[in-house]
Amino acid sequence: MSHHKRAFLKWAGGKYRLTPEINKHLPPQPAQGACFVEPFVGAGSVFLNTDYDRYLLADINPDLINLFNIVKQDVEHYIQQARALFLATDANSEAFYYARRQEFNQSEDQFRRAVLFLYLNRFGFNGLCRYNQKREYNVPFGAYKTHYFPEQELRFFAQKAQKAQFICADFEEVFQLLEQQPDNYIVYCDPPYAPLQQESNFTNYAGGGFSLAQQTLLAEYAKQAQANKIPVLISNHDTAFTRKIYKGAKIKKIKVQRSISQKGDTRIKVDELFALFA
């Protein structure tokens, strides 16, 4: 797109670079307009770089959905409070970061948690969003030399969010909702990717893995949606497993540059695919 918009969050596995390609493979909108649905919205890069009248955006992470709804409701107040945290004298120090992480894990104030979430996201390691079994945020300090406060990105997100409904739900709930409330839906799914190799299965984005059984179930929901005249586009790694579960879809293979080491400094080209059920 001519004005490629960045999300205000860093996000492992985010689709910022792929949004032009995703737009090419989305089915055309119906004449009377469509509601664009993302069961795995993540940081929202696809949402920000598409143009629909309405959006239904879901994620299983309650902190993420809470943040989006707060930014949607009053972005100026949010910017004021979040900027103050970024400008704190020792903001870019381990001691300050871990104190804020502890505050986040102990706080029940939804606005404060939303402010802290952005700070932790920007100052934590490599755009990760990870929790332990106690649902405590446990991403380590990032130790970056410089930081950027995403003020303009926040404002653009808030403006576009006026057309969106954000809900905390898993993909099963989202697809069931689509069946219960018929509309002109177009669905894009960006699940945690199936592993290229079983031993490198890093999918713990929200306090739990995304299993091969869940990958298969998502494909079944996509096929059922297709039968109900709801087109579904799914991104994933291109493997024998994904080819099998997406059998019957229109598949487009692409090569994408991806980090493969924990340091994020080793990048290779890997095969990904778009599977369109339409």
Rank of each mutant, 00 (worst) to 15 (best):
Q73S: 14
F171A: 03
H77V: 12
L154M: 12
L154R: 07
E172D: 01
R101G: 02
A82T: 15
L154T: 11
E76D: 14
G127E: 12
K134A: 15
I60M: 05
I79E: 09
V46Y: 12
F156C: 09
F141V: 06
Q73V: 00
V139H: 03
N126S: 14
R112H: 12
R113T: 10
N121T: 07
R155D: 06
V46T: 14
S45V: 07
L64Y: 01
D53C: 03
N132E: 10
I70L: 13
F171T: 03
F166H: 11
K163E: 09
N61G: 07
F104W: 13
D183Y: 00
F111P: 02
K145H: 07
F141I: 05
K160M: 08
F86N: 06
F149E: 10
F86S: 08
A88H: 15
Q152G: 05
L67F: 15
D51F: 04
K163D: 05
K145G: 05
I65D: 12
I70H: 13
I79M: 10
L87C: 12
N69H: 05
A82E: 11
L120A: 02
Q165K: 14
L120W: 08
D109H: 14
Y52G: 08
I60P: 01
Q181I: 00
F156P: 01
V174F: 01
I167T: 08
L116G: 05
G142R: 10
A88K: 12
F156T: 11
F123S: 11
Q133P: 00
K163C: 03
L87P: 02
F68G: 01
Q181T: 08
Y131F: 15
F123D: 11
D59K: 02
F157N: 04
Y119L: 12
K72W: 06
E172G: 01
P140S: 03
F47C: 03
T50I: 05
A143I: 00
E172R: 04
K134N: 13
A143D: 11
G127P: 09
A95F: 04
N66F: 05
L67D: 11
N121S: 00
F171M: 00
Q159D: 10
D63W: 01
R113S: 04
Y98T: 09
D170L: 04
Q81M: 12
E172A: 02
L128V: 04
H77D: 14
F86D: 11
E136K: 14
L128K: 09
Q110W: 09
A158M: 10
V139G: 08
D51L: 02
L57V: 06
A91Y: 04
Q133H: 10
Q162E: 12
